[in-house]
Write a protein that binds this DNA or RNA. Structure first.
Lengths: 214, 214
DNA sequence: TATAATGGTGTAATTCTTTACACCTGGTTG
DNA sequence: CAACCAGGTGTAAAGAATTACACCATTATA
């Protein structure tokens, strides 16, 4: 299933690697033209298209949007567009915009069909055992779709005072009830008129690695 | 050789570092404008000029010509994006190659740092509640690294007769013990000399969507 | 023998990106 | 106070890069 590259395609890939190393940025099409003695931008553009459908590179819009994709036993199929990059945010302080640059530790690729199209999504690292009965373990990354309110019973990321937490969210008698999924824990009841309590978003996915720590 | 930076200049430098790491290419002035909430290209251009005269960056002509100078934290953009495509396999029949074209339902992008470099990895859909105490729920996709043996106690994908299952794997007294993570289930003990029982691989990750069904 | 895949040439149109210029504001400093 | 520096806004123009289109030659394949 590994789609092989032709000699020429191999040359193009090598030129991209070289340029990245030498220049500290991906090459432009014109630079590749000079490198490979091609006199038309389309000559290069076609190669790039092939390299992308074969899964060796990934292209983003804008200038020099070539990214190398790691060798893997399985290559991306043609026309693969179910891809989104979701930032992993570290400390999220109350008030500050969550997706501010300084909060983003790294960006992880995931299927867009999970992240959702055109919505603000980010990963939050889970600490503690309060949701283990829902299969959310300490160290997992939950994918959160940013929104300011959720329907009763949804799993939500909520900010209480200055701390972010993930719980099942209910609104009862004007109070907010955050229900853990762990028999050892008690529900947290918050009176929004007394304590600062703000929905950050709803949990739409989960990513776990048994290999690396986040 | 290098003079001190102001707070704001430090922020610009940090934004450049993060963009390099995140995007695999230097940021454009417009991207920095968005990051730093500046509404004029000149606002950024001046900072870049200062950073260059102070010796923190070096600029080349052309688009995205920012290079970091003397920066231990980051020299060049990464040669590889942390991206791998992992196939979701449906029915896996005994004997047949797992990654055969006809088994692959779709291909999902994930961080390469989870999938692992250059190994055969695939997604298997989980059915049943037998591993819920390990946070593996029905409908989850487990990422499996193909291998023919695992160490005692690892979570493994195992093929018994013609069915694939995910359990904790132990070898005791010449028998194979597959231990569920659910108090309601009993361990499965298999005598490999009697029943066909074959390790498919070890579980290295997990992907869950609350949005779509797989 | 069609037909597809590979590897091209060339030219425009269109977007990105950078650069240059004019001018503003609030501190700091001689 | 005047001058300078840091940090801006805003706009226009020039330059860099990508994308789209039309068309060509060779080779392998159904």
């Amino acid at each position: 299933m590994t789609s092989r590259l032709t000699d020429r395609q191999e040359q193009v890939l090598k030129a991209i690697r070289q340029a990245l190393k030498r220049d500290g940025r991906p090459p432009s099409i014109h630079e590749l033209m000079a490198e490979l003695n091609v006199s038309s931008p389309n000559g290069i553009a076609k190669h790039l298209g092939v390299l992308e459908t074969k899964g060796y590179i990934h292209r983003e819009s804008g200038a020099r949007g070539i990214r190398l994709v790691n060798d893997n036993s399985y290559q991306a199929p043609p026309e693969h567009t179910d891809l989104a990059f979701v930032p992993l945010v570290g400390q999220i302080a109350a008030g500050s915009p969550i997706l501010a640059e300084e909060n983003v530790e790294e960006v992880l690729p995931v299927p867009q069909s999970i992240a959702g199209p055109g919505v603000e999504v980010f990963f939050l690292k889970v600490k503690g055992e309060s949701m283990i009965e829902e299969g959310i373990m300490s160290g997992d990354l939950v994918m959160v779709e940013k929104c300011s309110s959720v329907t009763n019973g949804e799993i939500a990321a909520v900010m209480i005072e200055d701390e972010a937490t993930v719980k099942r969210f209910y609104r009862r008698d004007g109070k907010i009830v955050l229900e853990p999924a762990n028999a050892l824990y008690e529900p947290i009841v918050v009176d929004p008129s007394i304590s600062r309590c703000e929905v950050v978003g709803r949990v739409v996915g989960l990513l776990r690695s048994y290999r690396r720590k986040f």
